[in-house]
């Protein structure tokens, strides 16, 4: 009976749904995290009677045909790249992007990764690095004896070195944008890499048209909305239960069919 297999696809889909939701909830407090959503599509249909087919020699037309679906499949799991709320930390090297764009990070293997998690700090050489110690590109070195760092909304980094009155410009931050940032390849550790789906990165200064601005002293919170995640979790669980009911019922029907012949 097809119903058994159909219900199994429904259960598998809801299981994937729960996995995606649980990852969102687990990352509720991850800086720069973007929530994901599973997309479902109905599976192929088996056409038993073609709509519009003739049912008699007199030219009667079957009005709607008989098509029986084979269940559901996970189309894709897509990332919702909406802005997370900005949290004030007061830390001079905590940066949040308000708007489009990603910080560029130089990976140990020489490739560039992209992140919205701007909880940066300085390493032992004064260079601005991510929480994992990877260099933020372009490399900006904070001079020794710096008493104050100011980063403007357009990404200009100014340092006031002890004993001097005026701050000096030590670097310019750049952001990268993508045509389709939902298509970026997630690497874990809040890092993304460009993929064929995302298109190539275009770097530019913050505040330029199409680029967001940099907010010093803030980090971007995850855009997970706990209430909607929990609601989705309830929906997924109930849908799973209903599909398991179909399995039970189909099984009962089969056992009835077997029991007919005593």
């Amino acid at each position: 009976m097809q119903a058994l297999r159909t219900a199994a696809t429904g259960m598998a889909a809801q299981q994937l749904n729960v996995e995606v939701i649980s990852n969102n909830i687990a990352n509720m407090n991850t800086v720069g995290f973007k929530r994901q959503s599973a997309v479902f599509e109905d599976l192929l249909y088996q056409t038993l009677e073609q709509p519009g087919a003739q049912s008699s020699d007199q030219g009667n037309i079957v009005p709607s045909g008989v098509q029986i679906g084979a269940g559901v499949k996970a189309g894709s799991v897509y990332r919702i790249t909406g802005q997370g709320s900005l949290t004030n930390t007061g830390n001079a090297l905590d940066l949040a992007i308000d708007g489009q764009g990603y910080f560029q990070v130089l990976m140990p293997d020489g490739t560039t990764a992209y992140t919205r998690a701007g909880n940066f700090s300085a390493n032992n050489q004064g260079q601005i690095v991510t929480a994992d110690g990877y260099l933020v590109q372009p490399t900006i070195t904070i001079p020794a004896n710096t008493t104050n760092i100011t980063i403007s909304q357009t990404g200009q980094v100014q340092a006031t070195v002890g004993g001097q009155q005026a701050p000096t410009i030590v670097g310019q931050l750049q952001l990268a944008t993508f045509l389709n940032d939902a298509g970026l390849d997630a690497q874990g550790n809040n890092l993304f890499q460009e993929s064929a789906a995302s298109g190539p990165a275009t770097a530019g200064n913050p505040g330029n048209p199409g680029y967001g601005v940099v907010m010093q002293g803030y980090t971007e919170a995850s855009n997970v909305d706990p209430v909607s995640e929990i609601t989705n979790l309830i929906i997924a669980q109930r849908a799973y239960e209903m599909n398991s009911k179909v399995v039970t019922t189909a099984d009962q029907m089969l056992s009835t069919a077997v029991a007919t012949k005593t």
């Binding site: 058994l4 159909t6 479902f40 084979a70 269940g71 559901v72 599909n243 189909a250």
Partner: peptide
């Protein structure tokens, strides 16, 4: 009658499998 009921069961199973599918339209057997 039983053959039709089995088809109807298949269709109901497909409806329930797609309870979360965006834009899905449910079906029933006539």
């Amino acid at each position: 009658r039983q053959i039709i009921l089995e088809r109807e069961m298949d269709i109901t199973a497909n409806n329930l499998a797609n309870v979360n599918t965006v834009g899905f339209k449910f079906e029933s057997m006539i």
